[in-house]
C-alpha cells in the first residue's frame, strides 16, 4: 500500500489540475521544497511566483491576482498561512470573497520534530470564523488531489490543510470526492466516530477494536469541515445517539466544535471531542499522537464513555 504525505499530493495535483488551467498561479513563501509546490514550478515556472519569506504580502498579492481573474494558490506552512497571515486572509481574501486557494501544509502535530512553534493546531478554528471560507482537510493522497481539483472548480476562497507525514491510502482510484459531503466509511448503530485528516485511519482502527468488543460504531470522514455536511452529522446523531470526534487540532473551534454546533441545533446527544489541549513538543509523529491522545485506543475509550452518557 502506498504511503504518501498529502503535501506531496498537493504538489502533484497542482501539476495535474493546475497546469492545464491557464488561470492557475502558484505562490510560495520560500518553502516550495517543503510544500511541494516545486513540483509545479518545475513544469510551469512561468506561473510560479516565489514571494520570499513574506506571507502577509503573499496573501494580498494572491488577492490582487484573483481580482484579475487568476486562481491563485498561496502556499506555506499552516502556521504562517492561517496563523501569521490571518488578518490578511480575513480582510483581503475573505471579506471581498476572492477566488484564492490557500495550500497550507505541515498542519497539525504530525509535523513532529520541529516542535510546537510549527505545529499548527488552531488553523481550522481560525479559518472557520471567516464567512464564506471553505475548509478541506483531506485524509489521504487521493482525497488531497481531488480536493485541489475541487478547489479549482469552486468559485471563492478555499483553505486546504495538508500534512507532512506520509499516510496510508484510504481510498482507491474509484473514489468520488464531493465538496461539502461527508463520507460514511463504515456503518454502525451504537455510536458514531466523526474524524478528519490523519485521524480517519485511527477512527477505522477504533471501530474494529470496538466491533471485537461487541460495539457497533459508525465512522464518518469529514474532509470538508466548512461547509459542514449537516445532514450526515444529524443523521448520525439521531440514528446512533452518541458522537465522538477526532482531529489533529486543538479541541476548541475545530471539527469537534463544528459537529457539536450541528448536533446541538438538530439532534442533541452526547458529543466527545478528541484533539489537543496544549502546545505540542518535538518528537516523532507516532510518539506525539500517543502523548496527546490522538489514537485509536483513546477513541475507543471515548466512544464507550459517550455511549454511557446516552439517555
Amino acid at each position: 500500500m502506498a504511503k504518501v504525505a498529502t503535501r506531496v499530493s498537493y504538489g502533484e495535483a497542482l501539476v495535474k489540475y493546475g497546469v492545464p488551467n491557464e488561470n492557475v498561479v502558484v505562490l510560495d513563501a520560500d518553502l516550495s521544497k517543503s510544500t511541494k509546490t516545486d513540483t509545479f514550478k518545475k513544469v510551469c515556472p512561468e506561473r510560479f511566483i516565489n514571494m520570499g519569506i513574506a506571507e502577509a504580502d503573499m496573501m494580498c498579492v494572491a488577492a490582487g491576482l484573483a481580482t484579475c481573474g487568476k486562481i491563485a494558490f498561496a502556499s506555506t506552512f499552516a502556521m504562517f498561512a492561517a496563523g501569521r497571515a490571518f488578518e490578511q486572509i480575513r480582510n483581503s481574501i475573505g471579506y471581498p470573497g476572492l477566488n484564492v486557494k490557500i495550500g497550507a501544509t505541515h498542519a497539525g502535530i504530525s509535523v513532529g520534530e520541529d516542535g510546537a512553534s510549527h505545529q499548527c493546531l488552531e488553523d481550522i478554528a481560525l479559518m472557520r470564523t471567516i464567512p464564506g471560507m471553505v475548509i478541506i482537510n483531506p485524509a489521504d493522497d487521493r482525497e488531497a488531489q481531488l480536493a485541489v481539483k475541487a478547489a479549482i472548480e469552486h468559485q471563492g476562497p478555499v483553505y486546504m490543510r495538508f500534512g507532512r507525514l506520509a499516510v496510508d491510502d484510504l481510498y482507491d482510484d474509484d473514489y468520488k470526492f464531493e465538496l461539502g459531503k461527508g463520507v460514511m466509511l463504515r456503518d454502525g448503530k451504537d455510536a458514531t466516530i466523526v474524524a478528519t485528516g490523519l485521524l480517519v485511519q485511527e477512527a477505522l482502527k477504533a471501530a474494529k477494536i470496538l466491533e471485537d468488543e461487541g460495539i457497533s460504531a459508525r465512522v464518518i470522514n469529514i474532509h470538508t469541515i466548512k461547509p459542514l455536511d449537516e445532514e450526515i452529522i444529524t443523521a448520525a446523531a439521531k440514528e446512533t445517539g452518541a458522537i465522538v470526534t477526532a482531529e489533529e487540532h486543538y479541541i476548541m473551534g475545530g471539527l469537534g466544535s463544528a459537529v457539536a454546533e450541528v448536533v446541538c441545533k438538530n439532534a442533541p446527544c452526547p458529543v466527545k471531542i478528541i484533539g489537543t489541549e496544549e502546545f505540542g513538543q518535538s518528537g516523532k509523529p507516532a510518539e506525539l499522537f500517543e502523548a496527546y491522545g490522538l489514537t485509536a485506543e483513546n477513541i475507543v475509550k471515548n466512544v464507550k464513555e459517550a455511549i454511557k452518557l446516552k439517555k
Binding site: 502577509a56 494580498c60 498579492v61 481580482t67 484579475c68 471581498p96
Partner: peptide, 25 residues
C-alpha cells in the same frame, strides 16, 4: 472600487498582485 481596503499595508500588496496579473497576461 477595485479592492476592499481599510486595514493598512494590505492594499498596496493587492495592487502588486494586480500588476503581476497584467504582466502574466
Amino acid at each position: 472600487v477595485d479592492m476592499s481596503t481599510g486595514s493598512l499595508g494590505q492594499g498596496v500588496c493587492v495592487a502588486g498582485g494586480m500588476a503581476l496579473a497584467a504582466k502574466l497576461d
